[in-house]
Structure formats: C-alpha cells, structure tokens
Simulated assay, not measured.
Amino acid sequence: MKTSDLLLEQAKLLEPELIELRRDLHRHPELSFQESRTAGIVARFLQGLGLEVREQVGGFGVVADLRGASEGPTVALRADMDALPITEETGLDYASGNPGVMHACGHDIHTSVLLGAARLLASRKAELRGTVRFLFQSAEEILAGANTMIERGVMDGVDEIYGLHNLPFYPAGTIGLKSGVLMGSIDRLEIRVDGKGGHGGYPETCIDPIVAASAVVAGLQSAVSREAPPTKGVVVSIGTIHGGTANNIIPDFVELTGTVRNLDPEWRETMPETIERIVSRICEAYRCRGTVRYIRQVPPVWNDTDLTGRFAELADRMLGSGKRAEPVPMTYGEDFAEYLRFAKGCFFWLGSGPSENAEQAAGLHSPRFNPDEGCLAVGAALLAGVALDRLA
C-alpha cells in the first residue's frame, strides 16, 4: 500500500482541529483584498510547521514552500480565502460576526483544507523529492487575486498545480472530476445606450433609451438561442440596468452590465463581435446609439488529461469505488484558470453536501449555505495525497 493511501485515515485524526479552524474563519469572514486576519492565521500556522513563508503576496496572499529531502519538481496547491457581501441566515452558533459579510462560497473550507494538507505533508518532508508550494489567495470572488499573485512570481518554477472547490450538491466524501473543461470562462459586459431625454408626457420630442435598452436585453438572448450551438455552453445575462431620475422624465442614457460565460475557448472569441453587432443595430433601429465595453476576465478551467487521470486513480484508492462522479461542465468560473496558463494542472469539486438529498442543499452564494464539515479531512487528504504521489 502506498503511503498516500493512508492519508485519509491520518487526515481524519486532524478533523477536530480543522473544524475548529474552519469555524473560527467562518465567524470572522473578510472581503476580497481585506483578508488580513485570515492571512495572519494562515501565515502563523505555516510558520509553525517550519515552512518558508511569504506574506502580503498580491494583496493578503500567503505563499509557503515545503522543500523535500532532495531536488525535484515543484507542485503547487492552491486555496482561496475571501468571503462575500452576503448577510448570513444559517442561525449557526458560529455564524458570521461581521455584518453583511459571509463565507457563503466555502473559502473557509478551502483554507482549512489546504492547511490540513500542509500539516500532513510537513510530517512527510523526508519522503518528498521536490517542493510543494502552498498558495493561499486573496480576492477570488472578484477574479483579481490569481493574477496579482502571478505577477509576484508565485508560478515561477511550478511544474504542476492542483486545487479544489467545495460543492454542496455532491455529498461529503465524494468528488467531481473530469478532464478538459470543468468550468467556463467569465467576461463582463458594460453597455451604454444613448438617446435624447425630455418630458415623459411628450415622448415624440425625445429619443427614448429605456425602450431601446429593453429591446437590447431581449435581443441579446438571441446571441445564445439563435447563434450559439447548444453544445458550446454559452450564457449571456444582464445583471443591472440603471437609467433615469424620475417617473415622468425620459433620460438621456441607460447603462447595463452583464456577464458572458463560455465553455468553449474558440466560441468565446466570437462573442465580442456578436454582442457589439446586436447592441449597435438594435439601438440604431430605435434611433439611439449603443456602445459596448467587453472586458475579458478569466478563461475556462481546463484540466490536463494525464494529470486528471492520475488524480482519479489516487482518489479511487483513497476514497473507494463509487465516490467519484464525472460532472457536467458548469458555467461557474474560477480564476484558478489563470494559473493554468503557466503550468498544467487539475481542479476538482469536493463534495460538501449532506449524505441524503444533497441536490436540495443550499447552494454556493446562498445566505443559508451550510456545508458538511466531513469534507475537510477528505479534501486535506486528497491535496496532500496528490503532492506526495507526484513527488515521492
């Protein structure tokens, strides 16, 4: 039996410590680029393990290297640390004490999992032939933290990278894993519709941007339903509309923002032209002028086939048969994708839902999100296991 196969049993011995740590982080959530307390806890924990630690890397990011007994490849393991601007409604005795801020996406889970993996691996330093680099990242929720860390050299010399995200729709003790695209790209739309304002009682003297903007929202749906093949996994959603100051005044302009998701990198390249054409021509039909700012944010999360296959074998050994599902690609997004531009890697879903009716659990970004803490030991064992498997 490989040493990595024993890690789950050893990780379960750490479970009380990981639960206590996670609940402390949950009680004190911090928004993107504000994770000072969380980063301090992470840094002190890693220093206590004897690792080489760098702090305030790309905001409040923490980077630590565990160097093995001899030279070899560098394997990176990544977790994110930030919370969301959501008011918690779980009623837990360790619920958020920071009004209007909540770990509603489980980054407290991810941070605790990776700290658990660090403890497991530090005790096996002599078995490592290479370096494990631990990346604790700020600001994933605003898709900014990965690039700020990359700009500070965290991927220099990294050969492979692994990460996870909890998912309450899979029961704790299970994972979701597939090669190729796992999550879609994310891009941002900013649209402005300019007309001519005036009195609402005399619309014929105006050029109404609200009517045009309404047509734009409806028309953009054709970018998906009538232009994108169903197999490409394209989503265009408008999230905000702002225009006007009073009920009887037609405004000069309306501003809209939205999100564009793609599972296909090539199809993603066609979207700016498609959206620009639809917006500009609809606005022209209403005598308005439409302008689009298309902002690229993160590419799809794309798992390396070979590494994913190896990780699947490891997971099956550690968790047993029937504990691994192959998920349908999702149009969630993750700035873990930015690291994959510099090294091949693998990202997986860590089940964090109840053993029964997990599909009915409160989802990510819900104010009632309440993951099963049984996932902590599983995640720690898997991350430690893949590093040990690659470097032992």
Rank of each mutant, 00 (worst) to 15 (best):
D80C: 05
T87M: 02
C105Q: 10
L77M: 12
V101Y: 09
S96Y: 04
A95H: 01
E89W: 00
D82V: 03
T90K: 08
D80S: 12
E88T: 04
P99Y: 06
P85N: 06
G97T: 14
G100A: 13
A79R: 05
D93A: 11
D82I: 04
L77Q: 07
V101L: 13
A95F: 00
V75R: 12
D82G: 04
D80V: 03
G97Y: 00
A83V: 03
R78F: 09
A76E: 02
T87G: 02
L77F: 05
D82E: 10
H107P: 09
T74Y: 06
L92Q: 15
T74N: 07
H103S: 13
V101D: 09
T74R: 07
A104W: 01
M81L: 14
P99K: 09
P85L: 10
G100V: 11
A83C: 10
E88D: 06
M102V: 00
M102T: 08
D93Y: 01
R78K: 14
N98A: 12
G106L: 12
T87L: 14
A104N: 12
E89R: 15
S96C: 10
M102C: 15
D93C: 02
M81A: 10
G100P: 10
V101A: 14
S96N: 08
I86Q: 11
D82M: 07
L77I: 12
L77V: 12
D82Q: 10
N98E: 15
I86Y: 05
L84A: 13
G91R: 11
Y94A: 00
D80E: 15
I86T: 09
L92E: 14
S96H: 05
E89A: 15
G100F: 12
R78V: 11
H107T: 11
Y94H: 15
H103K: 11
L92M: 14
G100Y: 11
A76C: 06
R78A: 11
T90Q: 07
R78N: 11
M81E: 04
G97A: 15
E88I: 03
E88R: 02
G97W: 00
T74S: 09
A79Y: 04
T90Y: 05
A76T: 08
G97N: 11
L77C: 12
A76I: 04
P85W: 07
A76M: 08
E89Y: 00
N98K: 13
Y94V: 01
V75K: 10
L84W: 07
G100I: 08
A76P: 02
L84H: 08
E88M: 03
Y94C: 04
D93R: 04
A104L: 06
M102Q: 13
A79S: 15
G106V: 05
N98S: 14
T74M: 14
G91I: 13
E88P: 01
E88W: 00
L92T: 01
